[in-house]
């Protein structure tokens, strides 16, 4: 029981812990403790709302219907995908501007609105599974072993998020934005797929749970069609049936399935709508991301060739102190000092 509920807790907490870990690493690198406080406000508020609503719906006179629970989870997932996507591209731009800002000594580039936007992403990331999780935890209030397992699982997820944060802050700026950006896009694609799954379960979106005639079924057995060539005609399962069903091969409650779900969004049973949304998102967003990264690198190279960059500056000062026309000797030490104060 303990291991099973541990894995459930781990799964529910991992995605949020990874996203919050990256958010914290990002503002940490920018030395913005005020935004850090906003992130913890977002996380804390989300947990507080989920825990209290979970208690009200478990012990109060009224519970939450299945549809509402799925619609809340699904809608928050879609909102989280939109905000995480926006943040990835914004982080790239901010990382690019970073060097110029350090050189012009213009601190505080994170606008007030942006800080709150980051706090909202933290809020949504925690909240989208939060209500479902706290409903489960309150339901186990009288079953200490299951409750403890789930709580330890959530703590393990937080520990993984912390490890990601520790690893991320060590990376240099360019690598940080490329890696975290790519990772967040892949996580967001998974959240999109699962949000659609939730909305399909609630029959808000058409799919395997919509019933006839929308759900494509085998005329003989009544089972929902799976894959490409099943059923009365080719591709009858598309787009409202299952794309694949690997539950016979992969246990969806096992540790690998849980890790796959929290990182790349893969589950052993996925509908065509989920897979289509997942693939479309990646096909649209990843090329733009790669192009933005390349633009940044080209701009960085161009900047390096015209003026002494941060890491080249000490060498140039030593070899040719007065030969650089773009930087006066008074400005040069200031440029070098800023990154030394923030060795990240």
């Amino acid at each position: 029981m303990f291991l099973a509920s541990f894995l459930i807790g781990l799964r529910e907490g991992l995605e949020a812990a990874l996203i919050v870990g990256i958010l914290v690493a990002f503002v940490h690198k920018r030395g913005r403790s005020d935004v850090l406080a906003k992130i913890w406000w977002g996380v804390g508020l989300s947990i507080a709302i989920a825990v209290s609503l979970g208690a009200v719906f478990t012990f109060g006179a009224y519970g939450l219907s299945f549809e509402s629970q799925e619609i809340i989870g699904g809608a928050m997932s879609l909102l989280a995908v939109a905000m995480v996507t926006w943040m990835v591209f914004w982080m790239l731009k901010a990382g690019h501007r970073m060097k110029a800002e350090l050189e012009s000594n213009a601190a505080g580039a994170l606008a007030v609105g942006t800080g709150w936007a980051i706090a909202w992403i933290a809020f949504l990331s925690v909240g989208r599974e939060g209500l479902e999780t706290t409903l489960m935890l309150w339901g186990w209030a009288l079953q200490p072993e299951a409750l403890l397992g789930a709580l330890v699982g959530i703590l393990a997820a937080v520990a993984i998020g912390h490890a990601v944060f520790r690893g991320m802050v060590r990376l240099n700026f360019g690598t940080f934005f490329t890696y975290t950006g790519a990772f967040l896009i892949i996580v967001a694609a998974g959240i999109l797929a699962y949000g659609i799954h939730d909305l399909q379960e609630a029959a808000v979106l058409p799919g395997p749970f919509s019933g006839l005639p929308i759900t494509p079924t085998d005329l003989g057995t009544g089972e929902v069609l799976v894959g490409l060539t099943d059923g009365p005609f080719w591709m009858a399962a598309f787009p409202f049936g299952w794309a694949f069903d690997l539950t016979a091969v992969i246990d969806p409650t096992g540790v690998w399935a849980i890790l796959a779900k929290a990182t790349v969004g893969f589950t052993p049973l996925m509908s065509w709508l989920e897979v289509t949304a997942w693939a479309s998102y990646l096909l649209i967003v990843l090329p733009r991301f790669v192009a933005a990264v390349r633009r940044n690198r080209a701009a960085a190279r161009a900047a390096r060739s015209t003026m002494p960059s941060l890491d080249q500056a000490p060498v140039e000062r030593a070899s040719a102190p007065a030969a650089t026309p773009s930087a006066s000797p008074e400005q040069a030490p200031a440029k070098v000092l800023v990154p030394e104060r923030n060795p990240s």
Binding site: S5, I8, G139, Q143, E145, G149, A203, P208, F209, G222
Partner: peptide
């Protein structure tokens, strides 16, 4: 539901030995 497709209600994640 009667068509065995639509979900009227569900309870996920019931750990072995636990009830919900």
């Amino acid at each position: 539901a009667a068509d065995r497709l639509r979900i009227v209600a569900e309870k996920e994640d019931i750990a072995p030995g636990a009830f919900a």
